[in-house]
């Protein structure tokens, strides 16, 4: 029983990182209907830059975290300028945008490898002080609690930002209809750029938390989360922010439970992808997606 509770708690922790990653993914899809496959590369660079700030520049993680997040956000602006904005007028912009995001993902990964080497690296010991609590037989570390709190805080701030602020409303307007938003005086290009800024900043933040949680960072670490992120946003419904959060948690839980039940990690992703496949066939809009199926 305790073991199960422990697994559930672990699933919640890693699920919150997946959710944070997927929120940024789904935000861009909701606004532009484009899959940004470079999101995972931004995730990687966010983590690696935070590591560099801590290790080489000697900063505290509390300063390095916001700086690296900001850096990831700027990468998002770069992505938009180089890979997406020039293609926006094309009839097949969804397809060509997907391709150019793949190109940027390869370039980013090459840059990460060139700057940080191909090896797996880790944050220096004592980057965050870790306390260990035992509650009802379940072991929780302060690092895990911190990760969930940071992820939850970012997601709450994002939700409020999208719901309440002027820019948030404009983002939703552009997501609904670019043309109508433009007619209403919304600066569509500016809104799209800020969407990329926010999305990539969240992706970078997820990369830092992931690196802290697993105590390992590598230039190709984005690859493992790329497919998971896709599964999460399909599960939650493309473009749905609460869907991405719930999808992330569900995916994290399904992972640890599959490992716990089958006893091996070989089948870890099988359940998730089978579910993903089934959802696409039965309810392509996802669990919390908009009613109509988009012709993407």
């Amino acid at each position: 029983m305790n073991l199960l509770a422990q697994q559930l708690v672990n699933g919640l922790f890693i699920g919150s990182v997946y959710g944070l990653f997927a929120v940024g993914y789904t935000l861009v899809f909701g606004v532009l209907d484009i899959l940004n496959l470079a999101h995972a590369a931004v995730f990687t660079l966010g983590g690696l830059v935070a590591l560099w700030l801590v290790q080489t520049a000697g900063m505290s993680i509390w300063l390095a975290f916001p700086l690296a997040t900001l850096f990831a956000g700027l990468l998002g602006l770069l992505l938009n300028q180089v890979a997406f904005a020039p293609l926006r007028k094309r009839a097949d912009s969804q397809f060509s945008g997907l391709i150019s995001s793949i190109a940027m993902a390869i370039i980013f990964e090459a840059v990460a490898m060139g700057l940080f080497g191909a090896r797996s690296v880790r944050f220096p010991q004592g980057t965050v002080s870790v306390h260990i609590w035992h509650i009802a037989g379940v072991t929780i570390t302060s690092l895990q609690v911190g990760i969930v709190l940071v992820a939850a805080l970012l997601m709450v701030v994002l939700t409020l930002f999208i719901q309440r602020t002027r820019i948030g409303k404009a983002i939703r307007a552009v997501a609904e209809s670019e043309r109508a938003a433009m007619l209403l005086g919304v600066n569509v290009n500016g809104i799209i750029a800020s969407t990329f800024l926010i999305s990539s900043a969240l992706g970078g933040a997820a990369g830092i938390l992931y690196g802290l949680y697993f105590d390992a960072l590598a230039p190709d670490m984005g690859r493992s989360i790329e497919l998971k992120g896709l599964a999460v946003i399909i599960l939650g419904g493309m473009g749905s922010i609460p869907g991405a959060i719930l999808g992330g948690l569900a995916f994290g839980l399904s992972e640890v439970l599959t490992v716990a039940i089958t006893g091996t990690s070989n089948l870890r992703d099988a359940v998730a992808f089978t579910v993903l496949f089934a959802i696409l066939l039965i309810r392509p809009s996802g669990l919390l997606g908009r009613g109509k199926m988009r012709e993407a």
Partner: peptide, 22 residues
Amino acid sequence: RGVFLAMATLAFGEVVRIAAVN
């Protein structure tokens, strides 16, 4: 269609890969 087809075939590919591993 479009991205959804890409992702369904992607999920299929992953299931095949995981099956081959197991």
